[in-house]
């Protein structure tokens, strides 16, 4: 299972349970309002609580919540566990663009090109204020902090062009701080890497 699938499963799990709960809460609420309206039920029963019920609806949500925590955590492990043979690329955020530095010192601005079928590890830092590297297609995001190196990784498993955005507010050009990720076949990548 790829990390993307792991995260998506967690999304389905949590959103599914939530929708179910929301539907239940709303339906019961509306039913009560109609069923026990004053014209139909002029005298209310004097019920002040029910320990059994209260314990049940404390414990069951706790278990559900813990299971959600577990699903979320395991999918996070997937995002943090980098395969050993990953290609490492250094990334630096600056106001307002992304710089990518490859192992052979090739440097590009706002253009990240990686070969198909490889794991890619991005070592992220910032040259000025906080930024955050976000590639929605791979469900990854990490803050770029000056004086600190953070990382993310993804598995480049499908040819195509993907958006990279900055998600930590960094000033006037924040929303223009975009870059492109291109996943290309290995041969094309090697050719590109050698270009000036």
């Amino acid at each position: 299972m790829t990390p993307v699938q792991g995260v998506d499963q967690a999304f389905w799990y949590i959103l599914g349970f939530s929708t179910l709960l929301l539907f239940g809460i709303t339906a019961v609420m509306i039913y009560f309002v109609i069923r026990y309206r004053r014209s139909k039920n002029p005298v209310a029963s004097d019920i002040r609580g029910n320990y059994f019920l209260e314990i049940v609806w404390t414990i069951i949500p706790t278990l559900i919540a813990l299971s959600m925590f577990y699903v979320g955590w395991t999918s996070y492990i997937g995002l943090r566990t980098v395969p050993e043979n990953a290609i490492e690329i250094d990334v630096a955020g600056q106001m307002f663009s992304w710089l990518f530095v490859y192992e052979n010192d090739k440097e590009t601005e706002n253009e990240l090109v990686v070969p198909l079928g490889e794991a890619i590890k991005l070592n992220v830092t910032s040259l000025d204020v906080l930024h955050s590297l976000y590639i929605p297609a791979f469900r990854i995001k990490i803050d770029a902090v000056k004086g600190m190196e953070t990382y993310v990784w993804f598995s480049a498993d499908k040819i195509g062009e993907y958006d990279i955005q900055c998600t930590e507010y960094c000033g006037t050009g924040h929303s223009a701080m975009l870059a492109k990720l291109r996943i290309v076949p290995e041969s094309e990548y090697l050719k590109w890497l050698e270009e000036e």
Binding site: A10, S18, T26, G72, P136, K141
Partner: peptide
Amino acid sequence: IYLFSVGGLTGLVLGAVGTDIHVHDT
């Protein structure tokens, strides 16, 4: 009650780490 429930339940998406990474600051 309805809106707060939606807010609370979507909070679970944000509380879970793996899913939060994707939607954090969006």
